[in-house]
Design a protein around this nucleic acid. Structure first.
Length: 218
DNA sequence: CTCCCGATAT
DNA sequence: ATATCAGGAG
């Protein structure tokens, strides 16, 4: 496992690669962000961004989502995938916003996770990006990168990964580091074809060195 | 653990 | 053809 100091050294290198990493889901207010993040489960941001322009033009408020039949909302988000669950969740979520939060998106993570379709990862993204609350949302990229680099253990679950990252990163850098880890995972330390051969972190990466050996001897 | 699920890269 | 995609609910 990388120490706290080694972890921050690795993050400094990643910061050089992606100094301006930020949320890539297009949105213009907390409500749109919440919808976009719910839609983004098991799906790329790029695909979500293809759908949200016309979605957000049609649906401005929680009332708008409740007003249409479920089947119509399903069709409007069909290309995202998992659309039946997501349409149902968005309707329930909007209902809750109106009934319990005056139509506004709550800022508290504990309130956010009570909403349909909102788990810890989504709640962290919304709290962090929309409201500036320090948080590290552990998605597939953050988990993969953290495990490959050895910031956490291979068998850690997402909760353990989040705890470890919060311990090894200063709180005022949680949000920016989270986005940089995502960029690093999405564009460089990719799931399918990681670019270990040109990786500035290869020296301190167990998995990378293992992969390079495997490639070199075959 | 399984199911949801279309789009995309390889 | 298959793995994967800013996961969450039952």
């Amino acid at each position: 496992m990388l120490t706290k100091k080694q972890t921050q050294e690795a993050l400094a290198v990643i910061a050089d690669m992606y100094p301006d990493a930020e949320c890539e889901l297009t949105h213009s207010n907390p409500f749109e962000l919440l919808i976009a993040v719910v839609l983004s489960a098991q799906c790329t941001d790029a695909l979500v961004n293809k759908v949200t322009p016309r979605l957000f033009a049609k649906y401005k408020t929680p009332e708008d989502y409740i007003a249409v039949p479920l089947e119509e909302l399903e069709q409007d988000i069909r290309s995202i995938g998992l659309y039946r669950n997501k349409a149902k969740n968005i309707k329930k979520l909007c209902q809750s916003l109106l009934e319990q939060y005056g139509g506004e998106v709550p800022q508290d993570r504990d309130e956010l996770v009570k909403l349909a379709g909102v788990g810890r990862k989504t709640a962290n993204v919304v709290a962090s990006v929309a409201f500036g609350v320090p948080a590290i949302a552990v998605d597939t990229h953050v988990e993969r990168v953290s495990k490959r680099l050895g910031i956490c253990r291979w068998k850690d679950n997402v909760t353990q990964v989040e705890q470890t990252l919060m311990k090894k990163i200063p709180m005022d850098e949680w949000s920016i580091s989270h986005h940089r880890l995502i960029f690093f995972g999405r564009y460089h330390c990719k799931a399918q074809n990681p670019q270990c051969d040109i990786c500035p972190l290869l020296d301190m990466c167990r998995e990378g060195k293992k992969r390079m050996r495997r490639r070199g001897s075959s």
